[in-house]
Amino acid sequence: MSASTWLAEATAVFVKEWRSELRTRYALNTFGLFAVTTLITASVALGPASLAPVERASVLPVLLWLILLFTATAGLPRAFVFEEETHTSTALRLAASPGPLFVGKAAYNLALTLALEALVVPLFLILFDLAVASPGLLALALLAGGFGLALGSTLVSALISQARGRGTLFAVLSLPILLPLLLFSVQLTRLAILGDAPGQTVEALLLYDASLTVASMMLFPVIWNP
């Protein structure tokens, strides 16, 4: 398959996903509702003044990534689960090549994740009156962390889509896949808030993303093909 054909297939999947989402607004509404609810709850309970300055850089990055994680997991796993639930997976299996299909779905999940971050992070910074000493590093943490979150969720969605007990399986499989990502992302966000040198955390996060990309591209055809 030529690169242009491959790219055209992936683009077709990405466009189809967005077209469906903009009409049903399932993920966007879920994200919006979940994100605003958790942000307001957290800000009321732990508002700007309730944390000692020394605790803020430790606690708030964890809180931010927990909000992002749980909001994302409310919508991202639908990528392949939805295809099985609506029986569209048969047509998709008969028409799509595994590689472009996975990339199209993952790109859609990444776009959703970045949209989620664009909604949550500014609100989070305002509600907690949080100053970020190194905004560039925070952007990198959000981009690389969001990439891993989107990719990992897409892979787990493919893994669980044909299984029973998907909710339980998603949690069980996500733990080993997303836990290292979250730890690196939280650490990098903390360093960005403090303005400290990132050390090897950036390399670790990027290496994790690269490993997850390679593993996903190798695993998905095995998962997808009967």
Binding site: A8, E9, R19, S20, R23, T88, T90, A91, A95
Partner: peptide, 24 residues
Amino acid sequence: APDLALYESLTVVENLRFFARLRG
């Protein structure tokens, strides 16, 4: 086949154009 379904949120022609693109 009876179990073959297409996307409910897409029109007839959007569905077929999507699968046409997948098949080049």
